[in-house]
Design a binder for these strands. Sequence first.
DNA 1: ATGAAAGCGCTAACAT
DNA 2: ATGTTAGCGCTTTCAT
Lengths: 345, 345
Amino acid sequence: MAKKVSIVDIANSLGVSKTLVSLVINNKANEYGISNETQKKVLDKISELGYRPNNLARGFRTGKSNTIGIIVSDISNRFYSRIVRTIEDKAWEKGYSVVICSTNEDYNKEREQIKFLCDKQVDGIIISSSQKDDSQFQELNQLKIPHVLIDRKFDNSNSCSVTIDNYKGSELAINHLINHGYNRIGLITITPLHISTIRDRELGFCDTMKEHGKVIDQSWILKIPFNNLEESIEHKITKLYKSNNLPEVFFTLNNNLTSNTLLTLKKLKIDVPDQISIIGFDDLLYFNFTQPSITAINQPVMDIGEKSFNLLIEQIEHKNKKLPIKSYQLPVELIVRESTKNIKL
Amino acid sequence: MAKKVSIVDIANSLGVSKTLVSLVINNKANEYGISNETQKKVLDKISELGYRPNNLARGFRTGKSNTIGIIVSDISNRFYSRIVRTIEDKAWEKGYSVVICSTNEDYNKEREQIKFLCDKQVDGIIISSSQKDDSQFQELNQLKIPHVLIDRKFDNSNSCSVTIDNYKGSELAINHLINHGYNRIGLITITPLHISTIRDRELGFCDTMKEHGKVIDQSWILKIPFNNLEESIEHKITKLYKSNNLPEVFFTLNNNLTSNTLLTLKKLKIDVPDQISIIGFDDLLYFNFTQPSITAINQPVMDIGEKSFNLLIEQIEHKNKKLPIKSYQLPVELIVRESTKNIKL
DNA sequence: ATGAAAGCGCTAACAT
DNA sequence: ATGTTAGCGCTTTCAT
């Protein structure tokens, strides 16, 4: 590879010191009283030789990489990719690059990824964690590595977080269903369930059902292993269908579950909403225009992205200071569409 | 921040040289004949002190950052996020981190992002480019910076690329339509159209139409500005509808156009496929289970990801050698579903 | 208004 | 089988 021009090349070819060049590059020339002509000389030479600063060297020297890491379970899930996109845009404005890692819900992989990012000297991490406890983040706290938990969090955590009101989301969903005359309500959820979002959504479901005096029929609680989602959903719904034991409605706890439930229903030629209704946690664009359109709980995706990035930057820019632990819990909204309109009061 | 332990700390506390420690860390100890006991001593001390290598320093020293950049127009578009996910998984196996950049189809932003990534000393770039010409990549070639074009490419380019057969895709689509008795065929495309994918898809459309002796009615060619996609689609389809001039079918040239076309049709209560049919370029999961399901041209997303990563790694690992320019053009497939089945022969 | 020199953490060529 | 040394490109402290 052709030797790249460095700050020394500029300095030598101009007969000045590299300090001076560095000052000019970093806009500290005026502050240090470098004459305008010298500055111009340097700038000209820089563009003449096509000099570009080596940010790796700079980061190494200053201890600041201007890189942040984002860890999610799957970047190809629209929920996460939209958050990432929001963060990326904000990061770009601030001169940060964004490294992404998908855990695939594997908490061991996630631990490695956190280490990996730390070794890369990222300035901070935004993470939707699959950990079972927050020991990993206690550690980050001790190492004073800025980080923000998003989507999923831990009880009594000492880390900043931006989450949404999962409990309330389920409450909205179930209240809506019951108010519209549904009685036989099924739940499609994920297992293992140590993740806070799913736990809170399940809790909201159970509590609200009980409040209304509804029995929770265990045969309608479908626990889907995340690593075998497609098959398992198909298998379990098919079984219920064959035994003539479908509920009136399925409440699906994330967009993946919703999509795959719809897929199975289509395969089985079970009509929505005539034979079964559906309401999903997390909204997607296509829910608007399917036949029927799909009722869903909408999460403020952009807000999650923006708030988490702001929290992270705050920590990065005040690494010495002891900042208060901020936790946002953002509101969700119920978007009623056609998939839950078949039962008459 | 508490001073992090470095290689010197290990060396000093053990009374050995940092070279030795470095050799052990990099698995070169045996090669250099370091005794097993010394190796163990070093390893023990490393875990005792919780030493972690500073990869920034390492990258700075070796000139290899073990980072690759991926540039796409929008990471939140499922087509790209799936490619990125595939690449990310492969990169992780090889010890590379992945920096993502969304251009939002802004070729100036893209140029800045390329510079940005180069300044960060990424080892290579995989890019779905929005450039008007390949000057940017000629430059990368001169700088010997490994890169692979995906999805979109340039004529007579000297860069490796992994694309799909866009022309053929349109051919498949139009042949399918015409063979099923469609006559009045509309096209929904993107403008400005300097992008190779769109250009080839349009070309395939026009050529195939002509082959079959079909007239191309300009009022059915909807050119949608990418930066105002939602509104523009709604506006243009509404206009056609109001003037009672809808075609029998719309061929939409990417997944965004397909989704937003479906959205508009739903808003206007235009029934698919009774009042209009639709066939889309690029397949999405939900196309399987909407009512009707949506006919689409499927692109081999995983293959694009894998092949492009392999090409990039090859370049990175043989940076000195002059490698042949490889260009893959992967096949597409037509997936016939219910949205194009209304016309009887 | 500018320069000299040290050093960030690591690797690698060269000694011994 | 292990140590010495130089240096990657940059910032920063201290001189002048």
